[in-house]
Measured scan of single mutants.
Amino acid sequence: MATDAALRRLLRLHRTEIAVAVDSAFPLLHALADHDVVPEDKFQETLHLKEKEGCPQAFHALLSWLLTQDSTAILDFWRVLFKDYNLERYGRLQPILDSFPKDVDLSQPRKGRKPPAVPKALVPPPRLPTKRKASEEARAAAPAALTPRGTASPGSQLKAKPPKKPESSAEQQRLPLGNGIQTMSASVQRAVAMSSGDVPGARGAVEGILIQQVFESGGSKKCIQVGGEFYTPSKFEDSGSGKNKARSSSGPKPLVRAKGAQGAAPGGGEARLGQQGSVPAPLALPSDPQLHQKNEDECAVCRDGGELICCDGCPRAFHLACLSPPLREIPSGTWRCSSCLQATVQEVQPRAEEPRPQEPPVETPLPPGLRSAGEEVRGPPGEPLAGMDTTLVYKHLPAPPSAAPLPGLDSSALHPLLCVGPEGQQNLAPGARCGVCGDGTDVLRCTHCAAAFHWRCHFPAGTSRPGTGLRCRSCSGDVTPAPVEGVLAPSPARLAPGPAKDDTASHEPALH
Rank of each mutant, 00 (worst) to 15 (best):
R149M: 04
E53I: 15
G268I: 12
L97H: 15
A246L: 10
S196T: 07
P266L: 09
L47I: 00
T151C: 09
S241T: 11
V192R: 06
A121G: 14
V192T: 09
R12D: 00
H35Y: 07
K259I: 05
A33Y: 03
A33K: 00
S64F: 02
Q182F: 00
R12C: 00
G155M: 15
L81V: 00
D198V: 09
K114D: 02
E270N: 10
K253M: 10
A58P: 00
R139L: 13
H48C: 06
K243P: 09
S195F: 02
L255W: 11
T68V: 05
Q44E: 00
A6E: 14
R8G: 01
K133H: 03
A138G: 09
L62E: 00
L81F: 03
E229H: 03
R247Y: 06
E53S: 06
F77K: 03
E207W: 00
R8E: 00
S135Y: 08
R272S: 10
P125I: 14
E171Y: 14
S71I: 05
G268T: 06
I224A: 04
D76I: 03
G240V: 09
A191W: 02
Q108L: 02
G155K: 06
I181P: 00
E40L: 03
Q94D: 03
R203L: 11
D98P: 05
I96K: 03
F26R: 01
K102G: 05
S196F: 02
L63E: 00
Q189I: 02
S64R: 00
S234P: 13
P56F: 09
L273F: 09
C55S: 01
A152K: 10
A191V: 02
H48L: 04
K245D: 02
E136V: 06
Q69R: 12
L273Y: 13
A152C: 04
S196N: 09
S196M: 10
K52R: 06
A138F: 12
A258D: 04
R132A: 02
P233K: 03
A141E: 15
K131G: 01
G242D: 09
I181M: 09
P143R: 05
K161D: 12
L7T: 13
E171H: 15
F26D: 01
C223G: 07
S217A: 04
L11H: 00
S153F: 15
D41N: 15
L97N: 01
R132V: 00
V104Q: 12
A19C: 05
L93A: 02
V22H: 02
P129N: 08
R247L: 08
S195N: 06
L67F: 01
G267C: 11
S107M: 13
G267D: 05
D76N: 01
A186P: 08
D98T: 01
I18E: 06
F100N: 12
R127D: 03
R174H: 07
K253I: 09
P115E: 07
G263S: 13
N244F: 11
A202V: 11
S156H: 10
D198A: 10
L13W: 04
L62I: 00
Q94W: 15
V80G: 06
A73V: 11
Q94H: 08
I74G: 04
D238N: 05
Y231R: 06
A33F: 03
G268C: 13
K161F: 15
S195W: 01
S217C: 12
E237P: 06
A145P: 08
E270P: 15
L128M: 14
E229G: 12
D76G: 00
L67W: 02
P124L: 11
Q173R: 15
I74C: 03
S64W: 04
R190C: 04
P116C: 14
A246K: 05
S248A: 09
L273I: 11
A117D: 02
Q262A: 13
K120L: 12
I224H: 04
